[in-house]
């Protein structure tokens, strides 16, 4: 079976939640019948899920102190004498 033109574009538009209703219908209908496009779409979804699964990391300890110590000095005096 021939895949519709723009089917990959529709996949991306779907992933960006910017797909037109009629294109979404076409995409869903096609994915139900085409294993090749189905696996392509799953690979896209998997790539996104993996990137999103990277753990949230924190700044190193003393980060703020290190930044504050490096700020231009002339203004720091004002803060201390507040």
């Amino acid at each position: 079976m021939k895949c519709p033109d723009n089917i990959v574009l529709y996949m991306h538009e779907y992933l960006d939640e910017e797909i037109e209703d009629q294109d979404e219908q076409l995409l869903k209908k096609h994915l139900q019948t085409c294993p090749k496009c189905q696996s392509y779409f799953h690979e896209l979804e998997k790539a996104i899920a993996l990137v999103q699964s990277t753990s949230h990391i924190q700044a190193p300890s003393n980060f703020t102190e290190n930044v504050m110590a490096r700020l231009p000095k002339e203004k720091r005096r004002v803060g201390v004498n507040r």
Binding site: F63, T64, M68, K75, R76, V78, G79
Partner: peptide
């Protein structure tokens, strides 16, 4: 001119 307020932003 209050530099310490920037610390909170950081």
């Amino acid at each position: 001119g209050d530099q310490s307020a920037y610390g909170e932003i950081v």
